[in-house]
């Protein structure tokens, strides 16, 4: 399936670009992506391409036709579990990324169990309450983990307003902080993926030791 792309060749091209030490650090890293919608589907692909060795993909939902305008799924995948569809897409792009999928809804009670193996947790939910629960739970119960979150990327607002801020030693926040989907009424692929790229870049920098 992966044709002429073997594991050593993929490692070599990453090592040529990042340096051997950074490539190895990323390959030995694990990131949990919590939610596989507009943010999470883009984050997961950015991290796989970026050389992260293992991804924990968590979502309870199925791909819907209304997702195709901004989420990294294909029309043929409508109806599939997002976890399975995203695992399939990543395997086509980067066949040696280890993938663990959990088809569950994360709650305050089960979060710690599902993200336990991650070095970095990426919050990629759509509901504000769920974002707050994940951040508060990880910061309180798993204080050794890095967590990256997003708030404010709805609508047609300025792309330059999307920023990454370090709130504590372990907690990073991306987005413009205010563009709410409830008031903006829409989510635009380019702006959501911009915010996703902020999360993915923060994760890669942390894992590479460049923050």
């Amino acid at each position: 399936m992966s044709g002429a792309v073997d594991r050593q060749a993929l490692h070599r091209v990453l090592a040529e670009r990042y340096g051997e030490e950074t490539a190895a650090r990323l390959e030995n890293s694990t990131v949990a992506v919590c939610g596989l919608g507009g943010l999470g589907s883009n984050i997961a692909i950015d991290l796989a391409r970026g050389g992260v060795g293992k991804l924990i993909l968590i979502d309870f939902d199925r791909v819907d036709i209304s997702n195709l305008h901004r989420q990294q799924y294909k029309a043929a995948q409508v109806g599939m579990l997002k976890t399975e569809a995203m695992a399939e897409n990543i395997r086509e792009i980067m066949p040696y990324t280890q993938i663990v999928t959990y088809n569950v809804k994360l709650t305050e009670e089960n979060i710690c169990k599902y993200v336990a193996d991650a070095d970095v947790v990426c919050e990629a939910f759509d509901e504000a309450d769920s974002k707050a629960v994940l951040i508060n739970t990880v910061c309180e119960k798993l204080p050794e983990k890095y967590i990256i979150s997003s708030s404010g990327m709805a609508g047609f607002g300025d792309g330059n307003d999307i920023k990454t801020r370090r709130i504590t030693d372990k907690f990073f926040l991306c987005g413009d902080g205010k563009s709410d989907v409830e008031s903006e009424k829409t989510l635009v692929s380019a702006r959501v993926s911009l915010c996703a790229a902020h999360e993915a870049l923060a994760a890669l920098k942390l894992l590479a030791g460049k923050i």
């Binding site: 939610g35 919608g37 507009g38 943010l39 999470g40 990629a124 939910f125 759509d126 509901e127 504000a128 309450d129 974002k131 707050a132 951040i135 979150s149 997003s150 708030s151 404010g152 990327m153 709805a154 709130i167 926040l173 902080g177 205010k178 563009s179 709410d180 989907v181 409830e182 903006e184 989510l187 959501v192």
Partner: peptide, 10 residues
């Protein structure tokens, strides 16, 4: 202090 107030969308 900083109060991070989350808004919806993702």
């Amino acid at each position: 202090a900083e109060v991070v107030s989350f808004v919806g969308g993702g």
